[in-house]
């Protein structure tokens, strides 16, 4: 177990290192937007474009040997010296620190609601297979699964924000975190995001739980006189949690890497998604890099936690290492 975790931890470090190196290499070979515009200006004003380039490179340290640039980059990354965002006029880390709470405001409720509803609806469906509830849950799950988040968000905003005037249309970033006003403006984004994720988790939970509801060991437990609820929680949910944790981590990554862009732009939430979106629009390279790396680190850490969760949940998994 300890050896297994140690190996996983080491692998996470290696993966991070590799990702950072590839990112550096990509940035190195990419044409520098700022440089192009400096050269253009120099040429327009009758100066020497090559001299401007040399000055730019010297100023940024790009004339130094490759390995020095690489080492500097890695040191900066490791010490969270992630550069300065020109479009926002503040250090990149500060911009992320400003945006992160807004993303948390909907992703924390999202996680809680997805796990609570996805697991319970899925488990109930599995134990009451082909009942009326199961059919209704299946229908809703396919609805939530099929409907595109950004479109659903706009429709709900038009309906509840414009026509019914129940929720504000413009997001107010200054609303206190734990206030009714903040809750009202977060209801729709959270609802839009959870429909899809609850739907998918429900279906996976139902399928996984069904496998164990019908397993011989569940019958053994029942024959021992164990109560239905204990069987469901200890004998069905525990083994089913292995694949489900994988799906949950994947969903969480999907939230940060894809859904957050759409939802934050539609609802005007100044979180990580919008920060990244605007950074791309403004060609603010350090900020694009940083917001992308946040997603990458979540992926690495998520996978690490998932691997550790596996061995806790299913003792057969680290068996080969003993």
């Amino acid at each position: 177990m300890r050896w297994y975790v140690a190996r996983r931890l080491l692998w996470a470090v290696v993966a991070t290192f590799v990702i950072l190196s590839i990112t550096w290499a990509l940035l190195y070979v990419t044409e520098q937007q700022a440089l192009t515009s400096i050269q253009f200006q120099a040429a327009v004003s009758g100066g020497d474009a090559e001299a401007a380039r040399a000055a730019y490179e010297q100023q940024r340290g790009l004339d130094r040997p490759l390995w020095r640039q690489y080492a500097d980059y890695m040191t900066n990354m490791a010490t969270f010296n992630w550069g300065y965002s020109t479009s926002r006029g503040q250090p990149v880390t500060a911009a992320i620190a400003d945006a992160l709470p807004y993303t948390m405001m909907y992703s924390v409720p999202w996680t809680i609601l997805t796990v609570a509803f996805g697991l319970s609806i899925g488990l109930y469906s599995a134990t009451h297979q082909y009942s009326r509830f199961d059919y209704a849950a299946t229908f809703l799950a396919f609805f939530g699964y099929a409907i595109p988040n950004f479109w659903f968000g706009i429709v709900l905003l038009v309906l509840f924000g414009v026509h019914l005037d129940l929720v504000p249309i413009v997001f107010d970033p200054d609303a206190p975190v734990f206030s009714l006003a903040n809750a009202r403006q977060l209801v729709l984004p959270v609802f839009v995001l959870t429909t899809g994720s609850i739907a998918s988790l429900t279906r996976y939970t139902r399928a996984e739980a069904l496998e164990y509801v019908e397993a011989t060991f569940t019958k053994t437990a029942k024959a021992k006189g164990v109560s239905e609820r204990r069987i469901l929680l200890l004998h069905v949910l525990r083994p089913a949690a292995v694949p489900l944790s994988t799906i949950l981590v994947a969903d969480l990554l999907g939230l940060f890497i894809a859904s957050s862009y759409l939802v934050e732009v539609v609802f005007g939430i100044p979180g990580l998604g919008q920060l990244s979106f605007k950074a791309i629009q403004n060609q603010d390279t350090p900020l694009v890099l940083a917001t992308t790396l946040v997603g990458v680190f979540i992926a690495v850490v998520g996978n690490l936690l998932q691997d550790i969760a596996y061995t806790v949940l299913d003792p057969r998994i680290d068996y080969g290492d003993r």
Partner: peptide, 22 residues
């Protein structure tokens, strides 16, 4: 439930899957 396991116990055919692997 009070009868199962207490007064009537079961042994099933397939020992490979009769025990919970967790």
């Amino acid at each position: 439930r009070a009868i199962r396991g207490d007064r009537i116990a079961h042994v099933f055919q397939d020992p490979q899957h009769a025990l919970n692997h967790c």
